[in-house]
């Protein structure tokens, strides 16, 4: 049984958890600073905001939700859900970005 404890039963130390929590708060402050103090030109403002959001999400998923230590299948599930979300958006944009009129009149 002992090798079963390799996955699913990782116990984080308080130092690890606090470090992750701290990093998340710092990143929150950074993203606010970018938006309200350092005004980046479009599209870099959106890219920075999303990059920071994804970094934060990655930290939460990896260390709070334990994906870093977990079986890889659960990570795959999360990635698959994001992939299908991107698929949905991308294909919908194929229509909405290439229309002759934005909202067709009937």
């Amino acid at each position: 049984m002992s090798d079963n404890h390799k996955h699913g039963h990782h116990i984080s130390t308080p130092a690890q958890l606090w470090a992750v929590g701290g990093a998340l708060i710092v990143l929150t402050i950074v993203t606010v600073l970018f938006a309200r103090v350092i005004h980046l030109p479009y599209p870099f403002n959106i890219i920075t905001a999303l990059a920071i959001a994804f970094t934060k999400a990655g930290l939460v998923a990896a260390f709070f939700m334990n994906l870093y230590w977990d079986v890889k299948f659960n990570l795959m599930l999360l990635i698959a859900s994001l992939a299908f979300f991107i698929l949905m958006v991308a294909i919908t944009l194929l229509d909405t970005l290439y229309r002759i009129e934005v909202v067709p009149s009937f």
Binding site: N74, L77, L78, S81, F84, M88, V89, T96
Partner: peptide, 28 residues
């Protein structure tokens, strides 16, 4: 745990619909 992760997949796509609407209207 796996059941919960599958449920999280659900949630991602549930909110995904809202994000999709957001993106479409923001590009417009």
């Amino acid at each position: 745990k796996m059941g919960m992760w599958v449920f999280i997949v659900n949630e991602v796509l549930f909110f995904g619909g809202l994000f999709c609407a957001y993106i479409v209207f923001r590009t417009w």
